[in-house]
């Protein structure tokens, strides 16, 4: 129980770090990858909270599909964020 609590705290801190990095990066591809990592960690947290249905949906939609659509969009536009 203690181990799971510590794991959840680590995962939640990493989610916040991933979200902050997604805002911080000027390279939009790296930003999208940070967002995908945060989304995967959210899916892991859902799994630890005993909601595997939501975890599968979050991993499929949040980590895979939005990343693919963002990558398609970045290919068509500029890769660097303008100052």
């Amino acid at each position: 129980m203690i181990v799971q609590s510590i794991l959840q705290i680590v995962i939640l801190v990493l989610i916040v770090v991933g979200a902050a990095l997604a805002v911080w990066f000027k390279d939009l591809l790296a930003s999208v990858l940070a967002l995908a990592a945060a989304s995967l960690l959210v899916a892991l947290e859902f799994y630890l909270l005993q909601a595997p249905d939501v975890a599968i949906a979050e991993a499929g939609i949040g980590a895979a599909l939005t990343t693919a659509i963002y990558v398609i969009a970045i290919r068509r536009t500029a890769r660097k964020e303008e100052e």
Binding site: P52, D53, A55, I56, A57, G60, I61, A64, L65, A68, I69, V71, I72
Partner: peptide, 21 residues
């Protein structure tokens, strides 16, 4: 098992999106 139509469809669609990218 956990999952369902929406989740499985999203997984298959993510494979299609991977092929596209």
């Amino acid at each position: 098992t956990p999952g369902g139509g929406f989740q499985g469809g999203a997984v298959v669609a993510s494979a299609f999106a991977l092929l596209l990218v």
